[in-house]
């Protein structure tokens, strides 16, 4: 049975698209049939992060409006056998996403895929609702920063009340907290909210922590999901998240300050 996972946050720019790309690639590399859908109609970005921007012919809106078949819009990733990308339209606006249209796309995708990953747009408008409505699980991407935490809490309220699972009285959407752009050094200095703080405030199980990392920009520059950069801290952290999601027990990394010389710790070098 296919699982639908929404990557959501409320607040913009916290790392949803970075996470969607890395998470989908990570699942596919485990041999699971995965499709990742860009719901950010009008501001499509997932194609760039996945490095398939020049192969986009048809998009989500074309399929919904009957201008293309789903199979024509799906882009097969060249690095992983089981990974497909469904891009968003760059020219229309989010209202072009109809409830029925999305529903029939999901029905069709469910026949072929194990996991359907939905990259939500920021905000709590139509596009974000469309992305979360059918979700079985949600990864709530949060930065250790006051407005991001507040927006995540808002999104949790919506996941509990405005999704199909809520409407039909089914088991609630399974929620996971993903803390991104985390700096253990700054947490230690008392300059940044720590993992425990955020987890306690939002009362969510933690799926992982992604450190603030230069490798993320390098990965997006080259159109390679950062999880493929196995040497990087962020890449490893995303690989761990995929493993945890699939039920493996993996200790959390990158939460504590790496051991360094005492002098560099005092002077923040």
């Amino acid at each position: 049975m296919a699982r639908i996972i929404v990557i959501t946050s409320g607040k913009g720019g916290v790392g949803k698209t970075t996470t969607s790309a890395a998470f989908a690639m990570g699942l596919a590399r485990k041999g699971l049939k995965t499709v990742v859908i860009d719901f950010d109609v009008g501001l499509r970005n997932l194609d760039l992060i996945m490095g398939c921007e020049r192969r986009v012919v048809y998009d989500l809106v074309n399929v919904i409006q009957g201008e293309a078949r789903l199979s024509q819009a799906l882009i097969r990733d060249k690095r992983a056998d089981h990974l497909y990308v469904l891009p968003a339209s760059q020219t229309r606006d989010k209202d072009a996403l109809s409830m029925e249209g999305i529903e029939s796309i999901f029905d069709e995708l469910k026949k072929t895929f194990d996991y359907i990953v939905c990259d939500s747009p920021a905000g709590i408008e139509h596009g974000a609702f469309m992305a979360m409505y059918h979700a079985d699980e949600a990864i709530v991407v949060t930065n250790p920063e006051i407005s991001s935490v507040r927006d995540s809490d808002r999104i949790l309220g919506l996941l509990a009340s405005k999704t199909k699972r809520a409407a039909e009285g089914l088991e609630p959407v399974k929620e996971h907290l993903l803390l991104t752009r985390y700096s253990p050094e700054r947490v230690q200095m008392g300059e940044m909210l720590g993992v425990e703080d955020v987890q306690e405030i939002l009362a969510l199980p933690l799926i992982g922590v992604i450190p603030e990392s230069q490798s993320v920009l390098a990965a997006s520059n080259s159109g390679v999901p950062v999880v493929l950069d196995e040497k990087s801290d962020a890449g490893q952290a995303y690989a761990d998240i995929v493993a945890r999601f699939l039920g493996e027990e993996i200790p959390y990394k990158f939460i504590d300050v790496q051991k360094r010389g005492i002098m560099s710790r005092i002077f923040g070098g």
């Binding site: 300059e191 909210l193 703080d197 405030i201």
Partner: peptide, 10 residues
């Protein structure tokens, strides 16, 4: 320690 302030406000 502004993180504590942030936590309490939140």
């Amino acid at each position: 320690n502004t993180a504590t302030v942030a936590r309490d406000r939140l």
